[in-house]
Write a protein that binds this DNA or RNA. Structure first.
Length: 149
DNA sequence: GCCAACGTTGGC
DNA sequence: GCCAACGTTGGC
């Protein structure tokens, strides 16, 4: 069972939002590498919910993939911030997955703590300049992060 | 708000 | 195919 990490700006969608709603759609990914990882996800896969561009960037909890990748509807909605004029119903290059709430950490596992852990040195998240918003997490990295709770 | 780093676009 | 310009990401 693969593990993943996905970034979201908590102002847009946070672990608290997912907890409250129980489930949601992970859409708006507009980067091909990240999209390709979305397409590799299977129902039941767990992911780390990362808060970016906020006061305390870090891993805020865990979610589960409840529906594997399908064409991202937001690309076709002109009123969406994620609208893509080059996408069409028959040619939509973007993917979304559905997710469900699993766990909200008592404290956000802040980025500096993740960077300081040598077990996470190879995680794309902590590498300088990395902007990837969806990435795989190795089982050892997954365990290392959970040990920081 | 700043800015480094990255991905994309488009001229050539 | 190269690469400069541009827009975006995201930490600080």
């Amino acid at each position: 069972m693969p593990f993943w990490l996905m970034k979201s700006e908590p102002d847009e969608f946070s672990i608290a939002d997912l907890q409250q709603r129980g489930s949601g759609r992970w859409d708006g990914v507009r980067n091909y590498q990240a999209r390709n990882y979305l397409r590799q996800m299977a129902e039941g896969d767990l992911f780390l919910f990362y808060h970016s561009s906020c006061a305390t960037p870090g891993v805020a909890g865990i979610g589960r993939i409840s529906r594997s990748a399908y064409p991202d509807p937001s690309a076709l909605q002109p009123d969406s911030a994620y609208f893509d004029g080059k996408a069409s119903a028959t040619g939509n290059p973007w993917s979304a997955v559905d997710v469900e709430f699993v766990e909200r950490f008592e404290h956000v596992l802040a980025l500096p703590a993740l960077k300081a852990d040598p077990r996470l040195a190879d995680l794309a998240l902590v590498k300088k300049g990395s902007r990837l918003s969806v990435m795989p997490v190795e089982p050892e990295q997954w365990q290392a992060i959970l040990s920081l709770r």
